[in-house]
């Protein structure tokens, strides 16, 4: 199988018969696009979950505060709305 490799040395492989820049540029673009496209949704998912978690906690706090005293804390309320 290895005798089917089209290059005889690593240097030749990297050089790509003089087309190194363009060939590697395309593959680099692909690698970048590929990794960004897979990691970005995962990061975004974590963000969404965190945000929702915060919102849930805040809502709970508001509810419990409202139970404690009927005066609604303005500040908490605003934060709750803002997120």
């Amino acid at each position: 199988m290895f005798d089917l490799i089209q290059f005889s040395s690593v240097g030749e492989f990297l050089n790509m018969g003089g087309y190194a820049f363009n060939v590697w540029l395309v593959y680099a673009l692909f690698a970048m696009f590929f990794s960004v496209n897979l990691t970005y949704p995962l990061i975004r998912k974590r963000q969404i979950v965190l945000e929702q978690k915060r919102r849930l906690i805040l809502n709970k706090e508001i509810v419990s505060q409202n139970e404690d005293n009927n005066e609604v804390d303005n500040l908490t309320f605003r934060v709750g709305e803002g997120t």
């Binding site: 089917l4 490799i5 089209q6 290059f7 492989f13 790509m16 018969g17 003089g18 087309y19 363009n22 060939v23 395309v26 593959y27 673009l29 692909f30």
Partner: peptide, 20 residues
């Protein structure tokens, strides 16, 4: 990248085809 023979006209740029 490794096994495709270079094209008789385009040489190694043929490897770009596999992404494009």
């Amino acid at each position: 990248l490794l096994f495709v023979p270079p094209d008789y006209q385009q040489g190694n740029t043929i490897r770009i085809m596999y992404i494009h």
